[in-house]
C-alpha cells in the first residue's frame, strides 16, 4: 500500500501515472480521473489561475488518500494537482487508484475527488475577455462529499 501526492506547476503525464499504478503488483483494477480546464458556458475563458496554501494542501491530500486506503482495498493511490496559470484544455488534476476490485477502485477515486473538491485549499480564478473572477464553490460538490458521511477529513 502506497500513496503518492504531488502539487506542481508542471503538467503531468497520464500515461506515466498509469504505468506507475500498474507497476504495483497484482492490481486487477485501475481507475483514473483527470480534470481539465473547460470552456465556460458563456465562453471567453482565456486562462485559469490556481492558488493554493502550500503546506496545508499537501497535508490535506495525504490525509484524504490515507482515509481512502483505510476505507477501501487500495494498493496504490496517486494524486497530482497543478497550480499556477493553466490554459484552456490543460490538465488540472489526476487521481489514480490501483485496487484488486473495480468497485473499491471507483469508490476510492470518487471519494478522493469529492473531498479534494471540498477540503483541499486550492482556489481557481478565471481570466476571461471581460476580466478576472474567483470561482465560487459549488453546492453540488458539498453534496457529493457529504454522501461519504465522513465528517472530518483531518481526523
Amino acid at each position: 500500500m502506497s500513496i503518492a501526492v504531488r502539487v506542481q506547476h508542471e503538467d503531468f503525464s497520464v500515461a506515466d501515472e498509469y504505468q506507475a499504478l500498474v507497476g504495483s503488483s497484482d492490481c486487477g483494477a485501475v481507475v483514473t480521473f483527470t480534470g481539465l480546464v473547460r470552456e465556460l458556458a458563456e465562453g471567453g475563458l482565456q486562462a485559469l489561475h490556481l492558488e493554493h496554501y502550500s503546506g496545508m494542501t499537501e497535508q490535506v491530500l495525504e490525509q484524504v488518500a490515507r482515509q481512502a486506503q483505510q476505507r477501501w482495498q487500495v494498493e496504490q493511490l496517486t494524486i497530482v494537482h497543478r497550480i499556477g496559470n493553466l490554459a484552456l484544455n490543460e490538465q488540472i488534476v489526476f487521481v489514480g487508484v490501483a485496487s484488486p476490485h473495480r468497485c473499491a477502485g471507483f469508490e476510492a477515486c470518487m471519494f478522493v475527488m469529492d473531498f479534494l473538491k471540498t477540503q483541499a485549499p486550492f482556489w481557481k480564478r478565471e481570466e476571461t475577455s471581460s476580466g478576472s473572477a474567483w470561482v465560487a464553490a459549488k453546492a453540488t460538490d458539498q453534496v457529493a462529499a457529504e454522501r461519504w458521511q465522513v465528517s472530518d477529513v483531518s481526523a
Binding site: 490556481l50 503546506g55 490535506v60 488540472i92 488534476v93 473538491k117 485549499p121 464553490a137 459549488k138
Partner: peptide, 29 residues
C-alpha cells in the same frame, strides 16, 4: 479557518507560534 494546516472551528484556542489561515471555500480539482 485552519490552524497549523488543519481545519479548525472558530473556538479553537491558539498558542504562541501558531499559523492561522483564513480563506473562502475551496474550489480546486
Amino acid at each position: 479557518c485552519a490552524k497549523n494546516y488543519t481545519f479548525v472551528d472558530w473556538s479553537e484556542p491558539l498558542a504562541d507560534g501558531d499559523e492561522v489561515a483564513l480563506f473562502p471555500p475551496v474550489t480546486g480539482g
